[in-house]
Design a binder for these strands. Structure first.
Length: 485
RNA sequence: GGCCCGUUGGUCAAGCGGCUAAGACGCCACCCUUUCACGGUGGAAUCAUGGGUUCGAUUCCCGUACGGGUCACCA
């Protein structure tokens, strides 16, 4: 029988959710959920020097708002807990000692000072710094003596001196590494804490992880992981090393431009499902030509064969386009709910037609943060020049605009049912009668109502949004404005 | 530097020995139009490079160039 897929996301709490990490979490989530498997959250905090207040909450919150719910984790428990490494300390040491007993690891009493000197010397000789295996073959009784004397020690992995380690990655295929290039890495540090690499292997096994989704940077250390699995006689998981997300061809996404953290994009006005949609597409391509997917749709469409080998450059312009497409496709009520907080930033008036406003905004909203500026004319008309009444395309001048506004005024005043359709019908009637182009009348109306060159709707829409009283007032103001200059 | 990995338009990418080398974003033009958008139509633009293998290479192999990753008592 096939094992149920179990994936995990194992971030270390740094206080921020890097967009690359979020994508790794997403892929791990999708891989598990596609198969009805389990997605596990584990916090890797073995470095006590890096403790950041509230960092774990950032991880929880980000995953939750993105809809990446976990089946087992520190807060909800599970059968393989605890899910925070700092609470699992005893476990690692026991396994390391077991490894020593099996001859696959050894105690090393080399001091940090000796290591530093060694590395300096190696560097001076043009070598890559590495451990010289000084303690690898220490006689057992001597080891015991040192242990009894309370000497400080670490436990190192005993990597085979020759041969090569071969492993298979779902994305990259077969990868071979000569064992002689592998260092006898530290498993347990002098403070008794496991190193990341070791804790990772032990926990992944103990938690029954079947598929490991992680960044490409682990490709080089995977042989060491596998040697550990083999030493313990454990099943080697399926590896999926995802390519990096880059800022440009030579740099990874960085904090510098505010383009590395999930929160940065929320601040820039991106809609969360669109962010998820876009990052899913960075380094992974679905089968067909569609590219707008909800998390649920991604779950059924996701297939590791679509993950590419080469790094992807993050393109905020493209993400913006995806964002706009998402916003346009939202049902009216949902769109309105999403934008209202942004609308309220500049619109304090309550007596306007927010539903019509939302409809006008919807095809024009790219980023949520663009909205306040788009609707700022609603509360008050900004200062503007009569040049705004000049349009070559609409064939208008301040003079024709003055005429237009003057003939519009009685019509607007006569309308009782001040709905868009009704206003539109009445104005069109007048336009037909006059035998002029629509723009000759409607362009000045829009200008008088907004005082802006670009608005989220035409003259008729703005009138309906603002309501009769305000529309009349603004037409009068417009007339006075033109006459005064 | 050693080892590992990658390279299709500006960007994301499909392709998996034979195609006029998809599609999307962006860009340009036109149409629609009460501004700007939305929408529609069309256009420019790509297989890093040199050798092989093959009747035939974007696709397979080798080298080169370029780029990335990794070599911690960090994760």
């Amino acid at each position: 029988m096939r094992r149920l897929v179990r994936t995990r996301f194992a971030p270390s709490p740094t206080g921020f959710m890097h967009i690359g990490n979020l994508r790794t979490a997403l892929y791990a989530y999708l891989l598990a959920k596609k198969d009805g498997g389990a997605f596990i959250l584990r916090i890797e905090d073995t470095d006590q020097n890096r403790y950041v207040e509230g960092a774990v909450d950032v991880i929880y919150d980000t995953l939750k708002v993105c809809g990446l719910y976990w089946d087992e984790g520190p807060d909800i428990g599970g059968n393989c807990g605890p899910y925070i490494q700092s609470e699992r300390m005893g476990i690692y040491k026991d396994y390391a000692v077991k490894l020593v007993e099996m001859g696959k690891a050894y105690y090393c009493f080399c001091t940090k000072e000796r290591m530093e000197a060694l590395h300096e010397e190696q560097k001076a000789n043009g070598e890559t710094p590495h451990y010289d295996r000084h303690c690898r073959d220490l006689p057992l009784d001597e080891v015991q003596k040192l242990l009894d004397s309370g000497a400080e020690y670490v436990i190192r992995q005993k990597v085979p001196l020759g041969g090569e380690t071969i492993f298979n990655d779902v994305i990259f295929g077969e990868i071979k590494n000569p064992n002689k290039d592998l260092d006898d890495q530290i498993l347990i540090k002098a403070d008794g804490m496991p190193t990341y690499n070791f804790a990772n292997v032990v926990d992944d096994h103990l938690m029954g992880i079947t598929h490991i989704v992680r960044g490409n940077e682990y490709l080089s250390s995977t042989p060491k992981y596998n040697l550990l699995y083999e030493a313990f006689g454990w099943d080697i998981p399926v590896y999926i090393h995802a390519p990096h997300i880059m800022r440009d061809s030579t740099h990874k996404l960085s904090k510098r431009d505010g383009d590395a953290y999930f929160g940065d994009f929320i601040n820039k006005g991106f809609y969360i499902p669109a962010i998820i949609n876009y990052i899913a597409l960075l380094g992974w391509a679905p089968k067909g030509e569609r590219e707008i997917y909800s998390l649920e749709e991604l779950t059924s469409e996701f297939d590791v064969s679509g993950i590419s080998k080469s790094p992807a450059i993050f393109d905020e312009v493209k993400m913006k386009a995806i964002n706009a497409e998402w916003l346009r496709a939202l049902p009216h009520d949902e769109f309105k709910t999403v934008i209202m907080p942004y609308v309220k930033e500049t619109v304090k008036h309550e007596d306007i037609d927010f539903d019509l406003l939302a409809d006008c905004l919807q095809p024009r909203a790219e980023l949520l943060t663009d909205i306040p500026e788009k609707v700022d004319f609603i509360d008050s008309v900004p200062e503007y020049s009569n040049d705004l009444y000049v349009s070559k395309k609409m064939k208008t001048t301040p003079q024709t605009s003055l005429d237009a506004l003057k003939s519009l005024l009685p019509i607007i005043e006569s309308i009782d049912d001040f709905s868009f359709n009704n206003i539109h019908a009445k104005i069109m009637e007048m336009i037909t009668e006059k035998g002029v182009k629509n723009g000759v009348i409607l362009f000045p109306l829009r200008t008088a109502l907004s005082g802006k060159a670009m608005t989220p709707g035409g003259g008729t829409e703005l009138a309906a949004i603002l309501g009769k009283t305000e529309t009349i007032k603004r037409i009068r103001d417009g007339i006075a404005h033109i006459e005064a200059n």
